[in-house]
Protein backbone atom coordinates (compact mmCIF):
# COMPACT_ATOMS: atom_id res chain seq x y z
CA UNK A 1 0.00 0.00 0.00
CA UNK A 2 2.64 2.49 1.09
CA UNK A 3 4.72 1.43 -1.91
CA UNK A 4 1.94 2.33 -4.34
CA UNK A 5 1.38 5.66 -2.64
CA UNK A 6 5.11 6.34 -2.91
CA UNK A 7 5.06 5.56 -6.61
CA UNK A 8 2.16 7.86 -7.47
CA UNK A 9 3.75 10.63 -5.40
CA UNK A 10 7.10 10.51 -7.18
CA UNK A 11 6.18 12.15 -10.53
CA UNK A 12 4.30 15.05 -8.91
CA UNK A 13 7.35 15.91 -6.88
CA UNK A 14 9.68 15.70 -9.86
CA UNK A 15 7.54 17.52 -12.46
CA UNK A 16 9.14 20.96 -11.95
CA UNK A 17 12.58 19.35 -12.08
CA UNK A 18 11.71 17.44 -15.25
CA UNK A 19 10.36 20.60 -16.91
CA UNK A 20 13.47 22.55 -15.97
CA UNK A 21 15.67 19.77 -17.35
CA UNK A 22 13.72 19.68 -20.60
CA UNK A 23 14.03 23.47 -21.02
CA UNK A 24 17.77 23.35 -20.34
CA UNK A 25 18.29 20.47 -22.77
CA UNK A 26 16.27 22.26 -25.47
CA UNK A 27 18.27 25.45 -24.93
CA UNK A 28 21.57 23.57 -25.14
CA UNK A 29 20.39 21.85 -28.31
CA UNK A 30 19.53 25.19 -29.92
CA UNK A 31 22.87 26.67 -28.92
CA UNK A 32 24.70 23.57 -30.14
CA UNK A 33 22.99 23.71 -33.53
CA UNK A 34 23.46 27.45 -34.04
CA UNK A 35 27.11 27.55 -33.05
CA UNK A 36 29.38 28.36 -36.01
CA UNK A 37 31.40 25.56 -37.65
CA UNK A 38 34.94 24.90 -36.44
CA UNK A 39 36.78 25.93 -39.59
CA UNK A 40 35.02 29.33 -39.60
CA UNK A 41 36.13 30.00 -36.05
CA UNK A 42 39.67 28.79 -36.68
CA UNK A 43 39.80 30.86 -39.86
CA UNK A 44 39.52 34.07 -37.83
CA UNK A 45 43.13 33.94 -36.68
CA UNK A 46 45.03 36.52 -38.66
CA UNK A 47 47.58 35.18 -41.17
CA UNK A 48 49.98 37.85 -39.88
CA UNK A 49 50.20 36.16 -36.50
CA UNK A 50 50.74 32.74 -38.02
CA UNK A 51 53.41 34.08 -40.34
CA UNK A 52 55.27 35.96 -37.63
CA UNK A 53 55.24 32.90 -35.39
CA UNK A 54 56.28 30.42 -38.06
CA UNK A 55 57.15 27.10 -36.43
CA UNK A 56 56.50 28.58 -33.00
CA UNK A 57 52.81 28.90 -33.71
CA UNK A 58 50.43 26.99 -31.48
CA UNK A 59 46.70 26.73 -31.83
CA UNK A 60 44.19 25.37 -29.33
CA UNK A 61 40.62 24.77 -30.26
CA UNK A 62 37.94 23.67 -27.81
CA UNK A 63 34.45 22.64 -28.71
CA UNK A 64 32.12 23.04 -25.76
CA UNK A 65 28.47 22.04 -26.15
CA UNK A 66 27.00 25.51 -26.72
CA UNK A 67 30.01 27.44 -27.95
CA UNK A 68 33.48 26.90 -29.37
CA UNK A 69 36.70 28.83 -29.05
CA UNK A 70 40.10 29.03 -30.64
CA UNK A 71 43.34 30.56 -29.42
CA UNK A 72 46.36 31.06 -31.65
CA UNK A 73 49.63 31.91 -29.94
CA UNK A 74 53.06 33.01 -30.99
CA UNK A 75 55.25 31.16 -28.52
CA UNK A 76 58.18 33.54 -29.13
CA UNK A 77 56.41 36.78 -28.28
CA UNK A 78 53.50 35.37 -26.24
CA UNK A 79 51.21 37.33 -28.53
CA UNK A 80 47.83 35.66 -28.90
CA UNK A 81 44.44 35.98 -30.55
CA UNK A 82 41.27 34.46 -29.19
CA UNK A 83 37.91 33.97 -30.89
CA UNK A 84 34.68 32.60 -29.51
CA UNK A 85 31.87 31.23 -31.69
CA UNK A 86 28.38 31.59 -30.24
CA UNK A 87 24.86 31.57 -31.82
CA UNK A 88 26.08 32.00 -35.39
CA UNK A 89 28.50 34.81 -34.52
CA UNK A 90 32.22 34.81 -33.98
CA UNK A 91 33.55 37.25 -31.39
CA UNK A 92 37.13 38.40 -31.01
CA UNK A 93 38.24 38.49 -27.39
CA UNK A 94 40.87 41.24 -26.90
CA UNK A 95 43.32 40.75 -24.04
CA UNK A 96 41.95 43.65 -22.06
CA UNK A 97 38.29 42.78 -22.53
CA UNK A 98 36.37 42.11 -19.31
CA UNK A 99 35.30 38.68 -20.48
CA UNK A 100 38.88 37.61 -21.25
CA UNK A 101 39.34 35.94 -17.82
CA UNK A 102 36.16 33.91 -18.30
CA UNK A 103 37.35 32.77 -21.71
CA UNK A 104 40.75 31.94 -20.19
CA UNK A 105 39.05 29.63 -17.71
CA UNK A 106 37.47 27.71 -20.55
CA UNK A 107 40.87 27.27 -22.15
CA UNK A 108 42.28 25.92 -18.89
CA UNK A 109 39.34 23.72 -18.03
CA UNK A 110 40.32 20.63 -20.10
CA UNK A 111 43.75 20.50 -18.44
CA UNK A 112 42.22 21.04 -15.01
CA UNK A 113 39.74 18.24 -15.63
CA UNK A 114 42.51 15.92 -16.76
CA UNK A 115 44.37 16.82 -13.56
CA UNK A 116 41.27 16.12 -11.49
CA UNK A 117 40.99 12.74 -13.16
CA UNK A 118 44.47 11.89 -11.94
CA UNK A 119 43.75 13.20 -8.45
CA UNK A 120 40.50 11.24 -8.20
CA UNK A 121 41.72 8.01 -9.73
CA UNK A 122 44.89 8.04 -7.64
CA UNK A 123 42.86 8.56 -4.47
CA UNK A 124 40.32 5.87 -5.30
CA UNK A 125 42.78 3.14 -6.24
CA UNK A 126 45.06 3.99 -3.32
CA UNK A 127 42.31 3.91 -0.72
CA UNK A 128 40.76 0.76 -2.21
CA UNK A 129 44.08 -1.04 -2.12
CA UNK A 130 44.78 0.43 1.32
CA UNK A 131 41.47 -0.75 2.74
CA UNK A 132 41.99 -4.20 1.28
CA UNK A 133 45.46 -4.56 2.76
CA UNK A 134 44.39 -2.98 6.04
CA UNK A 135 41.87 -5.74 6.79
CA UNK A 136 44.78 -8.17 7.05
CA UNK A 137 46.90 -5.67 8.99
CA UNK A 138 44.07 -5.10 11.46
CA UNK A 139 43.41 -8.81 11.93
CA UNK A 140 47.15 -9.26 12.38
CA UNK A 141 47.30 -6.54 14.97
CA UNK A 142 44.51 -8.04 17.09
CA UNK A 143 45.85 -11.55 16.58
CA UNK A 144 47.37 -13.39 19.53
CA UNK A 145 50.16 -14.77 17.34
CA UNK A 146 53.16 -12.74 18.60
CA UNK A 147 55.12 -12.51 15.35
CA UNK A 148 52.08 -11.48 13.31
CA UNK A 149 51.00 -8.99 15.91
CA UNK A 150 54.46 -7.39 16.19
CA UNK A 151 54.98 -7.23 12.42
CA UNK A 152 51.64 -5.55 11.78
CA UNK A 153 52.08 -3.13 14.67
CA UNK A 154 55.53 -2.17 13.39
CA UNK A 155 54.20 -1.56 9.88
CA UNK A 156 51.41 0.65 11.19
CA UNK A 157 53.79 2.52 13.48
CA UNK A 158 56.24 3.15 10.65
CA UNK A 159 53.77 4.44 8.06
CA UNK A 160 51.83 6.58 10.50
CA UNK A 161 54.97 7.89 12.12
CA UNK A 162 56.80 9.17 9.03
CA UNK A 163 55.68 11.91 6.63
CA UNK A 164 53.79 10.83 3.55
CA UNK A 165 55.92 13.22 1.50
CA UNK A 166 59.05 11.41 2.60
CA UNK A 167 57.49 8.04 1.77
CA UNK A 168 56.68 9.37 -1.69
CA UNK A 169 60.22 10.70 -2.20
CA UNK A 170 61.56 7.38 -1.01
CA UNK A 171 59.50 5.30 -3.43
CA UNK A 172 60.19 7.51 -6.42
CA UNK A 173 63.73 8.82 -5.90
CA UNK A 174 65.44 6.63 -3.29
CA UNK A 175 64.41 3.12 -4.37
CA UNK A 176 66.24 3.43 -7.74
CA UNK A 177 69.37 4.53 -5.84
CA UNK A 178 69.18 1.45 -3.64
CA UNK A 179 68.99 -0.82 -6.64
CA UNK A 180 68.22 0.04 -10.28
CA UNK A 181 65.77 -2.85 -10.42
CA UNK A 182 63.57 -0.98 -7.97
CA UNK A 183 63.05 1.92 -10.37
CA UNK A 184 59.42 2.83 -10.94
CA UNK A 185 59.26 4.91 -14.08
CA UNK A 186 55.53 5.43 -14.11
CA UNK A 187 54.85 8.38 -11.80
CA UNK A 188 51.26 7.36 -11.23
CA UNK A 189 52.36 3.88 -10.18
CA UNK A 190 54.97 5.29 -7.78
CA UNK A 191 52.43 7.64 -6.24
CA UNK A 192 49.89 4.82 -5.98
CA UNK A 193 52.40 2.61 -4.21
CA UNK A 194 53.32 5.26 -1.64
CA UNK A 195 49.71 6.30 -1.04
CA UNK A 196 48.36 2.76 -0.79
CA UNK A 197 51.07 1.68 1.66
CA UNK A 198 50.39 4.75 3.75
CA UNK A 199 46.63 4.48 3.58
CA UNK A 200 46.76 0.82 4.61
CA UNK A 201 48.35 1.84 7.91
CA UNK A 202 45.71 4.46 8.65
CA UNK A 203 42.81 2.21 7.62
CA UNK A 204 44.18 -0.66 9.69
CA UNK A 205 43.79 1.44 12.83
CA UNK A 206 40.25 2.38 11.76
CA UNK A 207 39.32 -1.25 11.15
CA UNK A 208 40.92 -2.46 14.36
CA UNK A 209 38.93 0.09 16.35
CA UNK A 210 35.70 -0.88 14.56
CA UNK A 211 36.24 -4.59 15.19
CA UNK A 212 37.05 -4.02 18.83
CA UNK A 213 33.95 -1.89 19.25
CA UNK A 214 31.73 -4.87 18.41
CA UNK A 215 30.05 -6.33 21.49
CA UNK A 216 31.94 -9.27 22.97
CA UNK A 217 28.61 -11.15 23.07
CA UNK A 218 28.76 -11.42 19.27
CA UNK A 219 32.02 -13.40 19.50
CA UNK A 220 30.58 -15.57 22.27
CA UNK A 221 27.35 -16.34 20.44
CA UNK A 222 29.35 -17.25 17.32
CA UNK A 223 31.63 -19.51 19.30
CA UNK A 224 28.72 -21.17 21.09
CA UNK A 225 27.19 -21.91 17.67
CA UNK A 226 30.40 -23.58 16.55
CA UNK A 227 31.65 -20.95 14.09
CA UNK A 228 35.41 -20.89 13.62
CA UNK A 229 37.39 -17.69 14.22
CA UNK A 230 37.57 -17.05 10.48
CA UNK A 231 33.84 -17.60 10.01
CA UNK A 232 33.09 -15.37 12.99
CA UNK A 233 35.14 -12.56 11.46
CA UNK A 234 33.83 -13.02 7.95
CA UNK A 235 30.14 -13.58 8.71
CA UNK A 236 29.54 -11.73 11.95
CA UNK A 237 32.14 -9.18 12.97
CA UNK A 238 33.35 -7.59 9.73
CA UNK A 239 29.87 -7.06 8.25
CA UNK A 240 28.85 -5.27 11.43
CA UNK A 241 32.03 -3.24 11.45
CA UNK A 242 31.41 -1.94 7.94
CA UNK A 243 28.78 0.59 8.92
CA UNK A 244 31.02 1.93 11.67
CA UNK A 245 33.89 1.99 9.19
CA UNK A 246 32.24 4.18 6.60
CA UNK A 247 32.55 7.58 8.34
CA UNK A 248 36.24 7.24 9.28
CA UNK A 249 37.14 5.66 5.93
CA UNK A 250 35.32 8.52 4.18
CA UNK A 251 37.38 10.89 6.25
CA UNK A 252 40.56 9.09 5.27
CA UNK A 253 39.52 9.19 1.61
CA UNK A 254 38.96 12.96 1.70
CA UNK A 255 42.35 13.35 3.39
CA UNK A 256 43.98 11.29 0.64
CA UNK A 257 42.21 13.37 -2.02
CA UNK A 258 43.83 16.46 -0.60
CA UNK A 259 47.15 14.81 0.22
CA UNK A 260 47.24 13.67 -3.39
CA UNK A 261 48.40 17.21 -4.19
CA UNK A 262 51.77 16.07 -2.82
CA UNK A 263 52.40 14.25 -6.09
CA UNK A 264 53.40 17.65 -7.48
CA UNK A 265 56.82 16.92 -5.98
CA UNK A 266 57.36 14.07 -8.42
CA UNK A 267 55.84 16.22 -11.21
CA UNK A 268 52.77 14.06 -11.72
CA UNK A 269 50.17 16.29 -13.39
CA UNK A 270 47.38 16.14 -10.84
CA UNK A 271 44.98 19.02 -10.28
CA UNK A 272 47.38 20.98 -8.05
CA UNK A 273 50.38 20.51 -10.31
CA UNK A 274 48.36 21.48 -13.39
CA UNK A 275 47.07 24.58 -11.63
CA UNK A 276 50.58 25.68 -10.75
CA UNK A 277 51.84 25.16 -14.30
CA UNK A 278 48.94 27.11 -15.80
CA UNK A 279 49.40 29.88 -13.30
CA UNK A 280 53.09 30.25 -14.08
CA UNK A 281 52.70 30.00 -17.87
CA UNK A 282 49.80 32.50 -17.90
CA UNK A 283 51.45 34.61 -15.19
CA UNK A 284 48.07 34.94 -13.53
CA UNK A 285 46.65 33.65 -10.26
CA UNK A 286 43.18 33.43 -11.77
CA UNK A 287 43.41 29.69 -12.42
CA UNK A 288 43.43 29.01 -8.67
CA UNK A 289 39.75 29.97 -8.47
CA UNK A 290 38.36 27.25 -10.79
CA UNK A 291 40.92 24.77 -9.40
CA UNK A 292 39.78 25.25 -5.82
CA UNK A 293 36.15 25.15 -6.89
CA UNK A 294 36.86 21.81 -8.57
CA UNK A 295 38.42 20.51 -5.32
CA UNK A 296 35.34 21.61 -3.39
CA UNK A 297 33.02 19.93 -5.89
CA UNK A 298 35.02 16.71 -5.68
CA UNK A 299 35.02 16.60 -1.87
CA UNK A 300 31.34 17.55 -1.68
CA UNK A 301 30.48 14.81 -4.16
CA UNK A 302 32.35 12.11 -2.27
CA UNK A 303 30.99 13.26 1.08
CA UNK A 304 27.51 12.90 -0.40
CA UNK A 305 28.28 9.42 -1.75
CA UNK A 306 29.63 8.25 1.61
CA UNK A 307 26.61 9.61 3.46
CA UNK A 308 24.35 7.66 1.12
CA UNK A 309 26.45 4.54 1.64
CA UNK A 310 26.24 4.87 5.38
CA UNK A 311 22.44 5.12 5.19
CA UNK A 312 22.31 2.03 3.01
CA UNK A 313 24.33 0.00 5.48
CA UNK A 314 22.27 1.07 8.47
CA UNK A 315 18.99 -0.51 7.41
CA UNK A 316 19.10 -3.01 10.25
CA UNK A 317 19.66 -0.47 13.01
Amino acid sequence: MSKIKGLTKLPAKYIPLAVAMAVIIALLAVLAITKPPAQNVKGQISPALKEAAGTKYSETYYNYICFNAVRGKDLKTAQEETYVGFVGNIFAVPDKSPIAPVVDIFFWLPALIRGSGITISLSIVSVLAGVFASVFLALGKISKVKLLNKTCSAYIFFFRGTPLMMQLYFVYYALPQIHPALTINNKFLAAFLAFALNSAAYCAEIIRAAIQSIDKGQFEASKALGLSYGQTMQLVIIPQSIRRLIPPVANEFIMVLKDASLVSIIALSDLTHTTRSISSSSSSALVYIPAMIIYLIITAFFTFVFNKLEKRFSIYQ
Partner: peptide, 8 residues
Protein backbone atom coordinates in the same frame (compact mmCIF):
# COMPACT_ATOMS: atom_id res chain seq x y z
CA UNK B 1 22.56 -15.71 26.80
CA UNK B 2 21.09 -13.12 29.11
CA UNK B 3 21.64 -10.43 26.46
CA UNK B 4 20.33 -12.54 23.51
CA UNK B 5 23.39 -11.77 21.35
CA UNK B 6 21.48 -12.06 18.10
CA UNK B 7 23.37 -10.94 15.00
CA UNK B 8 21.93 -7.47 14.34
Amino acid sequence: FQSFNLFP
